[in-house]
Amino acid sequence: MKQKKILIVDDDPNIRILLSLNIGAAGYETFTAENGLKGLELIKQDKPDLIVLDVMMPQMDGWEICKIIKDHSDLQSIKILMLTAKNAERDKMIGRHILKADDYMTKPFDITELLQSIEKLLAAPE
């Protein structure tokens, strides 16, 4: 089975290190981007299976990237896990229902839970 590719987009270097370390250890191929623009470039270039996406980032925020991907016929199948420090109910609603993110987790998150969610999203039929 081909190793699944996961892109981590977060402006916080610590979170990037944290996520690559753990997701890598779980057996996925990881690569990172520190802002939305670079993230979008990598998405188009490498076609990851899943994106762990931060919301509050400079230049282009997570909402925008999420919308672009879900509106793009070639990229629609990429799973999106939104990861954000915003935990207001309104933001959760936007993430889940309007922008059709596949999952939505708030910081500080539980790594075990995050890995379970990734596993579930990648196992789900297309």
């Binding site: 944290l18 370390l21 753990n22 250890a25 420090a85 910081k107 500080p108 998150f109 539980d110 075990t112």
Partner: peptide
């Protein structure tokens, strides 16, 4: 939340993984 995420995340990482 941002530093807390790191603190909690890395602590769990240290507990979970053999690094």
């Amino acid at each position: 939340r941002t530093p807390l995420t790191s603190i909690i995340g890395f602590s769990r990482t240290l507990l979970n993984l053999k690094l």
